[in-house]
Design a protein around this nucleic acid. Sequence first.
RNA 1: GGGGUAGUAGUUCAGAUUGGUUAGAACGCCGGCCUGUCACGCCGGAGGUCGCGGGUUCGAGUCCCGUCUACCCCGCCA
Length: 597
Amino acid sequence: MTTFLEEHGRTHVCGELRAEHIGETVTLMGWVGKHRDLGRLTFVDLRDRSGITQLRFDPHYAEDIHDVADSLRSEWCIAVVGEVVSRGANKNPDMPTGDVEVLPQKLEVFSEADVPPFVIRDETEAHEDLRLKHRYLDLRRKPLQEALLTRSKVNALTRNFLIDNGFAEFETPVLNRSTPEGARDYLVPSRIHPGQFYALPQSPQIFKQLLMISGFDRYFQIVKCFRDEDLRADRQPEFTQIDIEMSFVTPEDVIETCEGLIAAIFEGVHDLDVEAPFERLSYDQAMLRFGVDNPDMRFGLEITDISDAVADSEFRVFSGTVARGDVVRGIRVAGEADGFSRNDLDKLEESVKVYGAKGLAWVKVGDDDWKGPIANFLGDAEREAIEAKMGIEPGDLLLFVAASEEVACASLGNLRKDLAAKLDLIDESEFRFCWITDFPMFEEIDGDIHPMHHPFTSPHAEDMDLLGTDPLAVRAQAYDLVLNGHEIGGGSIRIHRQDVQAKIFEMLGMSDEEANDKFGFLLDALQYGTPPHGGIAFGMDRLVMILTGADSIRQVIAFPKTTQASDLMASAPSDVDADQLEELHLRLALKDDEDGE
RNA sequence: GGGGUAGUAGUUCAGAUUGGUUAGAACGCCGGCCUGUCACGCCGGAGGUCGCGGGUUCGAGUCCCGUCUACCCCGCCA
């Protein structure tokens, strides 16, 4: 006996049939969407990833399959053989295949389906946790199918562009040694080496540099990376980078290549001409004007420093802050003096307190006077000075934070985003790129110096002398690509001189012994004729998220994890057998309140 | 580690302010009718550990304490 599939191959997909196919006999395979039973006449929407075709079961045509047709239920996987016919006067202009329907003469049920836990349709109301538990069903929905197909397209466009531009793709180890800097590592115990561990890569950074030393010139890899840190809407513990490295290049060369790649991706996905070169902003400028190093440039609401204007203010909160060496900065919200109630302003104040601000001072600019709790403390001279800096008009709302530079930036930077959302200032169809350049080489955390990017980043040539005297003033040859307020890529020119690399390790508080233990292979390799090189890594998930208009990278990852880093479908992580632990030379040391689940 | 929001039929929610008879609706599901539907329509029906544990009370979906899970944010993310 032959099976249905042996007798009938799929001739078309469900989104394909048009008026021109009328009269053809076709074989379609897919899933039952809606079935509408009108008594003797039954309509079934047959769905696959290409779209939907309406099947019409009419006993005049095939009496013998009508009972089976009536028994069809949602999400059954079936096949039909039938004739494509016109819908005549009953065309459905809302669907691409709406001119036609298929009259099945044969019906094969491959698999029946349980009633799904949520209805499979484009717009679902089901909560995300339920959908994650049955991800294979959620992935039947069109928005997720489109997102993953876009992701596949980005993969292909990336490979094509880079291969065409002389890049070669290499794989690097997933099982690697743990290195001290950066994020927390995911560790893998070694069975063969008792007590020792591999680490999963946070990025293939050192390996790609070693490939440059080997002479491969132009490397790329689309690669999974792992960081054991807390999750966010745009952060997963495993994520995908488009990893790129080039030899004999300046930052300009890397940037130019990236702009070409991005343009190719946007053209391929959205048929959109991306304007290059992209806007550039130094890190200092970005922090001053936007408060963050990933500014959303689709709207204004820039931040203004008014410290000088209020240094001698009667308003002690302002003058005292400036006297301490901290800053007073503000945002002018044009024409919104009447747009915010006292209650609204209280809410804005709560939102800046999250970032450490003590409060949010506000002024409503009237036609001939300023109003608000602090207005009386601001004299004419101060008002004029503030006006000169912020360009004030009657009807404006002014918002101020007095705090350390760090807190002022963070609070106003995020207030700026909140305001834009509230005032609906963001054009969701716009893609606005910006390079952030000249990052500081180091940042100080609790008195210790840490690399802002990573310890292989090269300082600016002209700042090299500052390494010994004023390390916090040293600028790095590092650049981030920001799109609509998301960092979608970051890279740098790397250190190619062994003595400079050793010096950086030393500055980071690493002894020679420690540096040799952890990075000896890199320091050795740098001794053998290292080309100047640099590169970048793009966050694929974030890029696809923005390309598809998703608001979380979970929507563009086939099987993502929850904010507790769990896979609700596979129930990972999980306990393991005692035998497995034994083999790996591991013994659990759980505290009383940890039961290992 | 911290802050916020949510958890009640299969699903999405209402019910909680003011503790009190039998916890409702819509969608979905099941059955019946229906030959042009495409959010099909009409009639009928089934379906509940009110997240979990404890407490207060004559009585708890409702009040109190604890806890779990999901989401958003801070910290963290070279």
